[in-house]
């Protein structure tokens, strides 16, 4: 077990890694599920299985699974889930840049509120 400051470095590193994997996984699932050529029912699942997006999403989730277990074992659960909320901000910003989703004023307000909440928990915890 690393001592003192290096624990918070490990926690911060796991937190950052979780953001990258969660955002990457969500975007991959969005690309897999939003493909209009996919059709319906079983054919839809077969089509998605033949393309890389679904597997990229699953791969990201598997690694994220382990990263998140490690992260939560080092801090209280109530703090961990609140810090994890920053993923909402990451996915919105990624959607803005990759899919051209609009950021209205209300959305910017939501992003700022979530970010503010995560900062309060992170600094106060």
């Amino acid at each position: 077990m690393p001592a003192g400051g290096s624990i918070s470095t490990l926690v911060a590193g796991l937190w950052l890694l979780n953001i990258v994997l969660d955002t990457g996984g969500q975007l991959a699932f969005k690309a897999a599920a939003g493909d209009r050529a996919a059709g319906d029912g079983l054919a839809r699942w077969k089509y998605m299985a033949s393309r890389p997006w679904l597997w990229l999403g699953i791969g990201s989730y598997v690694v994220e699974f382990l990263v998140w277990i490690a992260f939560l074992s080092l801090i209280p659960l109530s703090e961990g889930v609140l810090l994890g909320s920053i993923n909402i901000v990451a996915i919105m910003l990624a959607g803005r840049f990759l899919f051209g989703e609009k950021l209205t004023r209300l959305r910017v307000a939501g992003i700022l509120l979530v970010t503010l909440g995560v900062v309060i928990v992170g600094v106060g915890g």
């Binding site: 109530s78 609140l82 209205t104 209300l106 939501g110 979530v114 970010t115 909440g117 309060i120 928990v121």
Partner: peptide, 22 residues
């Protein structure tokens, strides 16, 4: 739940609601 967690949670939930309404 210390003060930081409660205040942070309220801000986060308010933010989530804003995003849903938007």
């Amino acid at each position: 739940l210390d003060l930081a967690r409660v205040v942070g949670a309220i801000a986060i939930i308010a933010g989530i609601v804003c995003l849903g309404v938007a």
